[in-house]
Design a protein around this nucleic acid. Structure first.
Length: 749
DNA sequence: AGCACGCCGACT
DNA sequence: GTCGGCGTGCTC
């Protein structure tokens, strides 16, 4: 019976932080007030109460299910902007993660528990508004000192600042007790560019500030005009900015950002999660000052929280951050820049397995913004989109200041091996080139993308190699710790003296990593100052910054390292880059192996010759004819993209097709294969569109004592592929927990 | 992901 | 006889 006396029951659809669980509907008791889209709510779930996010404030009742009441409304205004809720829902669906995981990544870390926001407060001290005469009566020298400082600062001073000036907190306290000064608690936003007490000399300390715009080359001017034209057009557009290393992409981003913010638009700048992320943030901070907020994993939870709320309050108009910053709660985004768009760190390797670059493009579409994807080595996906006309292609073909690209020589190490044995790290040519640099006091980078001292330990009697007991990989020998270690599960053990298989006592090492390379470099160049950068040497926070600063200050002659030294850095005194074993990675059973190799070599070679002296590179390899190495040496992206594009088309890999990688874990390999097989058959039956390849044991068939089988779904329409897979999973809900679904995988290993 | 329920092994 | 191992199923 309809009655005007019974208010219509208010129902909300809520995303709860439970992987794979869909939206749930709850009643909102009128007494709890409004719960708009984007607000957090505490809701009963089974026997517990969790914090969820309202996704639909006016939901329709589901067919079955007995509805429960929301237990509390945390926010009566949207905590997440509605646009971010929509973006997260799209992520949850596209990447098959469900709304719970997706909304969780869109929230700042502390908010996920539904705790009230907490800010750090500090006491601000001001002179009490009393006649000056009484202040002159102040007796103690400490107190007089305090009054003198406070007179100089009529706006007041933070207590920690007074303490630094030599005025003790006790002194302030006694002044306050007599009513001569006023203490007020004030909220301070933790600024990642300041240290704990706000002196600005902390971890992300700035150089001489502020920075001003640089003159552009003619080519940069044209590129800026093209991008600015797209931005000013006002609609959604995506541009691929393909600029060679050292062509000044960053200055373009800065000037484009300046135009956008001058036009009242907000700017989102995404950078990959690599060693120089703080440096990139610093460049924006120097140019734009406090209008910039920072979001990346190197910040403390408190800093992230504060920066997030600055953005949410609309107090900044530029955000610089890594992957998850794509969800930054800016409300008038007009420009989104994704720097080094090909970088694999944009892909999150846990649920939701989203690619920040692709989410950025979707955000641009949803908010009618210009999205600029920048790279010296664009991903094949973005290049294909540009060729198809979906993205505007803007090119920078020259380095700034007319600097030449480095000259590159490929050294065929097969001849060195024949002459000097299989364990040569430094070939004759590279040694000679380094000697020339040392004589001229110029710097050298040497890249080897593999850690450790020896990569394999094997038995000369039965040929067995030492494997991880929990994973299907060889253990790597680390000399510094005198232990063997698994690079997948961190298992470590003392170096055995006898073979575990046959008991033979003649164990041999082979293969080499950066630790061995460093030792060889030190032995060969005894007077040189050598440093090494890899995961083993920079574990301590800030360690990499010290090494890089040392290099910039000329305190290092030779820097040895893994890919960490290859990306983005600008070291003007580096004139030589050596690549040892350029083919590390080419042997991997991954469809992106060649692309990764090309990108890594091109990027590291791009570190040479960024100052006044032209650069040189020496690339050592066992596959001197491989197209990825040849194209990288020639720094010829177009040639590489053409050849790699053929491979992808022939083998039916992205971007020729859309790919979903499904991994099924099991107790034994047979069990994993059987379950994967069952699922694969169901996908095949459910989806006439798209093909199913496999199942097969995963390349790493055992990781952390779990066996893994995988199959691929290839097709054109992702929606149809997702539907087929969803139907298969619904038929086997028991497999849900042992399943990894990776849509648009970066790697299928 | 939690959390409860449920059904088999070694102990106060 | 119980405590507790983690397989399975559910969460509006």
């Amino acid at each position: 019976v309809p009655s005007s006396l019974t208010a219509p029951e208010r129902l909300v659809a809520v995303a709860v932080p439970v992987p794979g669980l869909g939206l749930l509907t709850y009643r909102v008791p009128p007494a709890l007030g409004d719960a708009p889209k984007g607000a957090r709510v505490r809701v009963p779930l089974g026997t517990r109460v969790v914090t969820g996010c309202v996704v639909d404030p006016d939901a329709t009742p589901p067919a079955d299910a007995i509805l429960r009441d929301v237990s509390a409304v945390v926010d009566h205004r949207p905590f997440l902007p509605a646009s971010i809720v929509d973006l997260a829902l799209w992520v949850g669906e596209y990447y098959m993660a469900g709304p719970g995981d997706a909304l969780t990544v869109a929230m700042p870390p502390a908010a996920r528990e539904g705790r009230a926001s907490s800010f750090r407060t500090v006491a601000r001290v001001t002179l009490a508004p009393v006649p000056g005469a009484s202040l002159d009566d102040v007796r103690g020298p400490k107190q007089r000192e305090a009054v003198r400082h406070l007179r100089a600062h009529p706006e007041g001073l933070a207590l920690p600042a007074l303490v630094r000036l030599g005025v003790g907190a006790a002194t302030v306290r006694s002044l306050a007790d007599r009513g001569l000064v006023v203490l007020a608690q004030e909220v301070v936003f933790r600024d990642p560019f300041d240290d704990e007490d706000g002196r600005g000399s902390g971890r992300w300390a700035l150089g001489p500030a502020p920075d001003s715009e640089r003159a552009l080359t003619a080519e940069q001017e044209r590129a800026l005009a093209a991008l600015e034209n797209l931005r000013a057009g006002g609609g959604f557009r995506t541009a691929l900015l393909h600029g060679v290393t050292g062509s000044g992409k960053t200055e373009l981003y800065l000037q484009l950002a300046a135009r956008a913010s001058a036009g009242g638009q907000h700017v989102l700048m995404l950078v990959p999660e690599i060693a120089l992320t703080p440096a990139a943030a610093g460049i924006f901070r120097r140019r734009f000052g406090s209008r910039v907020a920072i979001q990346h994993s190197g910040l403390s939870t408190g800093e992230r929280h504060d920066q997030w709320h600055l953005i949410r309050r609309g107090d900044v108009d530029i955000v610089v951050g890594t992957r998850s910053a794509v969800f930054a709660p800016l409300e008038r985004v007009g420009l989104i820049v994704v720097d080094e768009e090909h970088e694999s760190s944009y892909k999150q390797e846990e649920s939701p397995r989203y690619n920040g670059r692709d989410v950025a493009v979707m955000r641009g579409r949803m908010e009618s913004a210009l999205v600029v994807l920048g790279s010296a080595t664009p991903s094949l996906e973005s290049f294909a989109n540009a060729k198809a006309g979906r993205y505007e292609l803007v090119r920078l073909t020259r380095r700034v200041a007319d600097r030449p690209l480095a000259t590159v020589r490929i050294v065929d190490m097969r001849q060195e091996f024949a002459a000097r044995g299989p364990d040569v790290t430094l070939g004759t040519e590279l040694v000679a080139a380094i000697d020339r640099r040392l004589a001229k006091r110029e710097q050298t980078l040497v890249l080897l993308n593999r850690r450790g001292f020896a990569t394999v330990i094997f038995c000369r009697q039965c040929a067995a190699s030492l494997e991880c007991p929990h994973c299907s990989v060889s253990l790597t020998y680390h000399r510094a710790s005198r232990r063997v270690r698994c690079h997948y599960c961190d298992y470590a053990a003392a170096v055995p003296t006898r073979c575990g298989e046959c008991g033979g006592e003649f164990l041999e090492q082979s293969g080499f990593g950066t630790e061995r390379l460093e030792a060889d470099v030190r032995a060969r160049f005894p007077g040189a100052r050598v440093r090494r950068v890899d995961r083993d040497t920079i574990r301590r926070r800030g360690a990499i910054g010290e090494v890089l600063r040392g290099l910039a200050a000329g305190e290092v002659d030779i820097l040895v390292g893994t890919q960490m030294i290859a990306k983005g850095h600008d070291f003007p005194a580096v004139t030589l880059v050596g690549v040892v074993s350029a083919d590390v990675g080419l042997g991997l059973a991954d469809f992106r192996a060649s692309e990764r190799t090309f990108q890594l070599i091109t990027q590291v070679v791009g570190r040479a010759g960024r100052g006044d002296v032209p650069g040189e590179a020496v690339v050592q390899t066992l596959y001197p004819d491989h197209y990825s190495i040849r194209a990288a040496a020639a720094q010829d992206y177009t040639a590489f993209a053409a050849r790699e594009g053929e491979f992808r088309a022939t083998m039916q890999y992205p971007p020729a097709v859309a790919l979903i990688n499904v991994v099924v874990k099991g107790r034994t390999l047979d069990a994993a294969l059987a379950d994967a097989g069952d699922l694969a058959v169901r996908v095949r039956d459910a989806g006439p569109k798209g093909r199913v390849i496999g199942p097969a044991p995963a390349a790493m068939s055992k990781i952390k004592d779990e066996y893994r089988a995988q199959f691929f779904i290839k097709g054109v329409r992702r929606a149809a592929m997702r539907r087929a897979l969803m139907a298969a999973i619904d038929a086997r809900p028991d497999l849900k927990r042992r399943l990894i679904v990776d849509v648009d995988p970066m790697s299928v290993l």
